[in-house]
């Protein structure tokens, strides 16, 4: 039977209910996706000693213009004497070195050198002076590492810059603490021991090797944690939550008011 129409309101079918159905469907799909979405597995190993000579050749070709012929440093770049193989391995495997241009910010990129050349370069830098070696993590050690202890150490030492879920954060004057989502356990250990860029150095007396492995294990966990409550919203806390409540929550219910409050469908 008729929609009794008002003299002044034109009877017009609004597509809103259909839109809402679609939205609802999207919510359902999002929910299902959350349940079946694949989770990447962490993995990481690697240490070796390669020929120092091969490394020296590579070094002289690719690094010496900034770091000096024997890694003694220039006014453009710091000395590499004593930084250890761990530092070189970290910088090269994370693609931070070589820099695309002098003075650029060292950001994570795809590595320039293939793995065997990185091995050689690291061995060469490690041979310059005693320094932290490339760490290795035994399977036993990894399995024994206590996630809870790693978490406590991470919150006490790392979260202030890298954020509780390893999402990174801002530092002063345009510098940034990187997100840890791509860091392998070995890279995490190397960073702890060598303090790349502005990161402080943590010695084995402060954080012993088992503890460092526990931290690395926690980093692997927390950067890709299970989200029992639905979409993780980037694990960045109240800011994405505020965006969601305004852009989805408030906008959604206001749109519903527009639909409900309109005269006749």
């Amino acid at each position: 039977m008729s929609h009794v129409t008002n003299a002044r309101s034109a009877p017009r079918r609004r597509p809103l209910p259909a839109t809402l159905v679609v939205l609802l469907g999207l919510f359902v799909i999002a929910g299902v996706w959350l349940l079946v979405a694949p989770r990447s597995k962490a993995q990481g190993t690697g240490d070796n000693a390669a020929t120092v000579t091969k490394g020296r050749v590579l070094f002289e070709r690719g690094c010496s213009s900034c770091h000096g012929l024997h890694g003694e440093g220039t006014n453009q770049a710091p000395t590499l004497i004593g930084v250890g193989a761990a530092a070189a391995d970290f910088q090269l495997t994370t693609g931070r070195m070589p820099l695309p241009a002098p003075g650029a910010e060292a950001e994570r990129r795809d590595p320039i050198y293939p793995p065997e050349q990185i091995e050689a370069l690291s061995a060469y830098v490690g041979s310059l002076a005693p320094g932290p070696p490339i760490p290795s993590i035994g399977d036993q050690q990894w399995n024994d590492a206590d996630l809870a202890e790693g978490g406590e150490l991470f919150r006490a030492n790392c979260a202030s810059c890298h954020q509780a879920a390893g999402k990174g954060g801002a530092l002063t004057y345009g510098k940034h603490a990187p997100a840890l989502s791509e860091a392998t356990p070995v890279e995490a250990l190397e960073a702890i021991r060598t303090g790349p860029e502005n990161m402080p150095v943590f010695s084995p007396t402060q954080i012993n090797d088992d503890q460092a492995v526990a931290i690395a294990k926690y980093v692997q966990f927390v950067t890709n944690p299970p989200d029992p409550g639905g979409a993780g919203l980037g694990h960045l806390g109240p800011i994405p939550e505020g965006l969601v409540i305004w852009l989805i929550g408030m906008t959604g219910v206001a749109a519903a008011a527009l639909w409900i409050g309109s005269r006749q469908a």
Partner: peptide, 14 residues
């Protein structure tokens, strides 16, 4: 004040 920058020697409060 937890954010320590080793090279610039800044301490930043988050």
């Amino acid at each position: 004040v937890g954010l320590y920058e080793r090279t610039t020697q800044h301490l930043l409060c988050p």
